[in-house]
Structures are given as structure tokens and as C-alpha cells.
Design a binder for these strands. Structure first.
Length: 338
DNA sequence: CGGATTTGACCGGCGC
DNA sequence: GCGCCGGTCAAATCCG
């Protein structure tokens, strides 16, 4: 019965788009630079996700790429209690938002936010609680109710506090994008109104409760929606050397997300047939930037509005400038047209 | 053999 | 109260 349906969820949606190419899906105007908001990914792409449905009101970084590249976009979840956006030096001035994004910029914040928790501190508390559970909590739980299959110590009368969430959309044939952290899949569910299942991952780092959900957009099968929940409080396991330099021969990626800046090894991209291009917080918006990459000529990046980015891992000096993470030679700044 | 994934079951929130 | 649905658990299974 229902189980039959459940079985369907395990059909992996990897092939549906095998014969699709990026350029097939979204024609890229010749003059990217002149168009500040090309990839206005419809909110309706995520009808099943309450959080994402309200995406219209938050800032996002939308990166455009040449047809060879995927198009990653990052969205700040509207409810995300975003830790007070580090007002640092580089806080973006919304006044600079282009007219095209006015709807985005002016939409009032959702009033739901009060129910939200709050900030990274809460997130951390949550994390800590979760951190405790794997070892101690679970033990106790099992002791308490071994008869039942499982019973989480869910706090009653206490809504589960939502952690800061970030979602970004990526054009990719691969569902699970490697972001430098190690994830363990702990569930997969069919999503209503979507032929594609949603996968649930948890960071495998011992004291990290960060989770992420990965699903394909039902509207656009070529788009993978990755939603991060929580904040990594540890360095990426894959950055043993702590090197932040970009690999010249191919593109390493930096992702500005809930977990800060990440970078990953080029090989991983090749495996994934995906090349995420660097995107970051940029001190002023909007800005148009070109990146020189060896395998392709450039990618186009547009920052429409500020997007919260937690402080990068330790060894990182961030002045909020692109140059902080990208060798200056990789950047070709384009003169603003406005 | 250990870690990762799969998958059916369970739980809680929410709308009706 | 009931059913739907998202999220999670954990045993079974897979895989390197």
C-alpha cells in the first residue's frame, strides 16, 4: 500500500537529466554583464518546502556561468535566524540593489521569524545537545525504551528550534555535491509533488550536528537544491593542509554558506562532473565579476544582495574582499555599468 | 570488518 | 481526532 509508494522513493533520479545540458535549459545571453538578474530561479521550484517558498524575501547570491558550468545560487533561508550578520566591515549596502531585484530586496521579512530560534548560539546549543546525544543521550534513550524501536528525547512543548538554514541551487547532474565536509546519509524520503526524493545528510564530524538536505527541483530537474542546517564549528576534514590557495590548473571552489567558506579538491569536481565556481560575499552589491578559470574562460557572478556568511575557518583573513580568497590574478573586475 | 547506505517504521507538527 | 507529511531512527544491507 503506502509502502509501495515508499518504495518508489528509492528510485534514484540520476538519469532523467543525463541528456540535458546546461545550455539546453537556460539560454545564456551573450552579454551577461549587462544583465544583472538572469537566473531568477522561481520560488515555485520548491513548493513543498515552507521555508523555501518564502525565498522571495532574502538576499541571495546568484552566479551565472558560461554554458559549461553549472549555475550555483545561494539562498538564505528566510526564517533563518541568522546570527546577526556579522556587520563587519564589509556589510553590504542594500541600497545598491539593482532595480531588477527590487522585489527581492523590498519584500518584508516574514513574520514567522519569531518562532525561530535564533542565532548561531542557539544553533550551537542545539548542536551541543545533539553532540551529546550520539554518545550519552542515545545510550540513555535505548535504556529507557528498548521495547519501542526508538524514542527521541524530544523536548515536549518546545518546538524544535530551527537552525540557521541556507539553501543553494546548483545546476548539476550529481545530487550530492561535495562541499569539503564529510556527510553521512541518514535518510531519504519521497517529496510530495516531486518525482525526486530528498536525501538527508549529517556531518560525520564527531561534534558537529550540521545537517543538509539534498533534492532536485521538481520544476527543473537539472537543479539540485541543497539546504544546509546548522553551522560547522570545525574545519573541513579535507583541508588537512589548510591551504587556501586555488589550484591553478583547475578550479577549486569556495562556498560561502552556513558553514563558512569551503574549498575542495579539484579532483572531486571532476568526479562529479561539476565545477562549482567560487562565490563569496562581496563587499558591495551589486557587483559583477569575472573569474578566469583554466578550463573555461570565465564565469559571471552577480551579487544582488547581501548574504550572510559566517566567519571563515580560522586561518582565514577575511576582509570581505574577493581578493581575500581568490588570487587577484583570477579576478577581472568588470566596470560597473550603473 | 568497519563505515556508509538503504529502507521500513516511528514520531511530531500541522491542517482540516 | 484524524490523516498527511516531513524528519529521523536504526536494523539490515552493501561495499571497499
Amino acid at each position: 500500500m503506502e509502502k509501495d509508494k515508499r518504495l518508489e522513493k528509492n528510485i534514484k533520479p540520476e538519469n532523467p537529466m543525463s541528456n540535458l545540458t546546461f545550455s539546453d535549459q537556460i539560454p545564456i545571453p551573450a552579454t551577461l554583464a549587462a544583465i544583472p538578474n538572469i537566473y531568477d530561479i522561481p520560488i515555485a521550484a520548491h513548493p513543498h518546502d515552507h521555508d523555501m517558498v518564502k525565498m522571495e524575501s532574502f538576499g541571495f547570491i546568484d552566479m551565472l556561468t558560461v554554458p559549461d558550468y553549472p549555475c550555483p545560487s545561494i539562498y538564505e533561508m528566510p526564517q533563518s535566524p541568522l546570527p546577526p550578520p556579522p556587520p563587519p566591515s564589509n556589510h553590504i549596502n542594500n541600497n545598491n540593489a539593482p532595480p531588477e531585484s527590487s522585489d527581492v530586496a523590498t519584500t518584508p521579512a516574514t513574520p514567522n521569524s519569531p518562532s525561530v530560534s535564533t542565532s548561531s548560539s542557539d544553533a550551537q546549543n542545539d548542536d551541543q545537545q545533539q553532540n551529546k546525544t550520539p554518545v550519552e543521550g542515545e545510550q540513555e534513550d535505548r535504556d529507557q525504551d528498548k521495547t519501542k524501536k526508538h524514542l527521541k528525547p524530544k523536548k515536549k512543548n518546545q518546538k524544535r528550534q530551527k537552525e540557521p538554514r541556507f539553501a543553494f541551487m546548483t545546476k548539476s547532474e550529481v545530487d550530492h555535491l561535495d562541499d569539503g565536509y564529510r556527510w553521512r546519509k541518514y535518510g531519504q524520503k519521497a517529496v510530495k509533488n516531486s518525482p525526486f526524493p530528498r536525501s538527508y545528510y549529517r556531518c560525520t564530524s564527531p561534534s558537529c550536528g550540521v545537517k543538509k538536505r539534498v533534492e532536485r527541483s521538481s520544476g527543473d530537474p537539472t537543479t539540485v537544491v541543497t539546504t544546509y542546517e546548522g553551522t560547522h564549528m570545525h574545519p573541513t576534514p579535507l583541508t588537512s593542509r589548510g591551504s587556501l590557495g586555488l589550484v591553478p590548473e583547475s578550479s577549486a571552489s569556495f562556498i560561502c554558506g552556513p558553514s563558512g567558506y569551503h574549498h575542495q579538491q579539484p579532483q572531486q569536481f571532476q568526479q562529479q562532473q561539476l565545477q562549482l565556481l567560487p562565490f563569496f560575499r562581496v563587499p558591495t552589491a551589486p557587483a559583477s565579476l569575472h573569474f578566469n578559470t583554466p578550463s573555461s574562460s570565465f564565469a559571471h557572478m552577480i551579487v544582488q544582495e547581501s548574504s550572510y556568511c559566517p566567519p571563515p575557518p580560522s586561518s582565514f583573513v577575511d576582509n570581505g574582499l574577493l581578493e581575500d580568497i581568490v588570487p587577484s590574478e583570477m579576478l577581472i573586475k568588470e566596470p560597473k555599468k550603473e
